[in-house]
């Protein structure tokens, strides 16, 4: 749906050009939730803002459904933006307008809705974001989560194909973040809406995204399915972020810090196999025992996964057979520190 080709953008700081993003290439598919993660200053905000040209890239093309939006005329761009909603970290609601009028605003801008239809649509959206009882309040009277719900309703008003979320949950507490993320997943599934979101929190990526791009110093460090990137991070920056979010030590150091010797494995389970007693079965079949040192079992979006660091108590021959056995069960098995 979106094809980002070689886009770069720099800012002038004290008269000197500082690159914000350089030579970004990404493809975002119809109907997916695509996450862009990076530390502050990595260029993620600049990147998402090029997708509706709030920032105009210095070079490169952005193809949306085949047309290059950087070549759009003013009118074409306005039309495109009406079909690409944006949600902001600080909500950016109109403080002088009520909740209902804030949601009505984009409908009025489009000029396509007769008054009665506008009312129906506003009521629909209020119900979608569960704010029906707050329609005549002003933003100052709402909580952060409620403000963001207004922001989302407003962004969805004109039936967009694309929703851009610029740190939509970063100003919210963890509980409210969860409810906003649930709402985003819900609208993604119900309307098949493509969502691009940027965040600095791995938990947000884990909870809602299908694919992710990791941004570092204005470049894409790595990208791919969230399950791949989170479970098998390749780039040092990604590793650091994953480790931080899972509160794990680097597994290679684990054996040494525990004073253990002997072969250690990192096992990665993905899918239904996560909930089966695989360790027990292989231990029995191969005549070894496993000492579980560290691990996590959870879900990435809807996919169950587990990642365990285990010490294998047995001979070297046992280790080879154990590896094969895991392989047969499609369990990713990596020998650590050998």
């Amino acid at each position: 749906m979106i094809n980002i080709q070689h886009i770069s953008k720099h800012y002038l700081v004290d008269g000197r050009p500082i690159p914000a993003i350089s030579d970004i290439n990404l493809t975002i598919e119809q109907g997916e939730i695509f996450g862009i993660i990076g530390a502050s200053g990595a260029g993620k905000s600049t990147l998402i803002r090029t997708l509706n040209l709030l920032e105009r890239p210095d070079s490169g093309r952005i193809l949306v459904d085949g047309s290059d939006i950087t070549q759009f005329s003013k009118e074409q761009l306005q039309g495109y933006r009406r079909k690409a909603g944006m949600v902001f970290q600080h909500f950016n609601l109109l403080g002088a307008k009520t909740v209902a009028d804030n949601i009505r605003f984009p409908l009025k801008l489009s000029g396509e809705y007769p008054e009665a239809e506008m009312e129906t649509r506003v009521a629909e959206l209020l119900e979608l974001v569960e704010l029906t009882g707050h329609r005549d309040k002003y933003p100052a009277q709402l909580s952060g989560g409620q403000k963001q719900r207004v922001g989302i309703a407003r962004a969805l008003a004109n039936h967009p194909k694309l929703l851009l979320c610029d740190e939509a949950t970063s100003a919210l507490d963890p509980q409210t973040t969860q409810s906003i993320l649930r709402l985003l997943r819900d609208i993604n599934q119900r309307f098949g809406l493509t969502i691009v979101l940027i965040t600095h929190e791995m938990d947000v990526i884990r909870a809602v995204c299908d694919r992710v791009a990791v941004l570092d110093k204005g470049k894409v460090a790595e990208h791919g399915w969230v399950t791949d990137v989170l479970l098998h991070p390749k780039h040092p920056v990604t590793r650091a972020m994953v480790r931080e979010s899972s509160h794990h030590e680097e597994s290679a150091d684990l054996g040494a810090s525990l004073g253990l010797s002997g072969p250690m494995l990192r096992l990665t389970f993905l899918g239904e196999i996560t909930y089966q007693p695989v360790l027990e079965r292989i231990a029995t079949a191969q005549g070894v025992s496993f000492n579980i040192l560290e691990g996590v079992i959870g879900r990435i979006k809807d996919t169950p996964y587990g990642q365990l660091t285990v010490q294998v108590i047995g001979s070297n021959d046992d280790l080879a057979r154990v590896e094969t056995a895991f392989g047969e069960q499609s369990i990713h098995c990596e020998v650590l520190g050998s």
Binding site: K74, G85, M86, F88, H90, N92
Partner: peptide, 14 residues
């Protein structure tokens, strides 16, 4: 707030 202007732009306001 500059954000309000940006939000309007993002909604396709002239």
């Amino acid at each position: 707030d500059r954000g309000i202007i940006e939000a309007s732009q993002s909604m396709g306001a002239s």
